[in-house]
């Protein structure tokens, strides 16, 4: 079941940039594209742990700042076949809402 919680104002995230949400099991990077779409994926690059939130955002993709793997923000899939987890996120009246259902799963586990 999805459970959207308000995490920030859309304008707190720069266009073509990202901000972090801290969770018990690592950081989630919340991205905003040039045309105001938002995406949320795990911040940690599976290659060598590069912080994806610090990558350059182009279209709906981000390039890892350490070794330039390119991740599709929609799917979390990279061109080098790594994968990061994606989270449901949406914008509601200028607020960014993140689906926190994963918290329940994690604490239940």
């Amino acid at each position: 079941m999805s459970q959207f919680i308000d995490i920030a104002a859309l304008d707190d995230i720069p266009r073509q940039g990202a901000r972090l949400v801290k969770t018990q099991s690592g950081c989630i990077a919340v991205f905003r594209t040039a045309d105001d779409q938002v995406f949320a994926i795990d911040d940690r690059c599976p290659h060598k742990g590069g912080p994806l939130s610090e990558g350059i955002v182009h279209g709906t993709a981000v390039t890892c700042p350490l070794h330039a793997a390119v991740f599709d923000l929609n799917t979390g899939q990279s061109t080098d076949d790594w994968h990061v987890k994606t989270y449901a996120v949406r914008v509601d009246g200028g607020r960014v809402m993140l689906d926190a259902a994963f918290l329940a799963r994690r604490s239940a586990a």
């Binding site: 920030a8 707190d12 604490s107």
Partner: peptide, 11 residues
């Protein structure tokens, strides 16, 4: 970070 959910428990 813009939000810290580490202390937030599931409802």
């Amino acid at each position: 970070p813009i939000a810290d959910l580490t202390l937030r428990a599931a409802e």
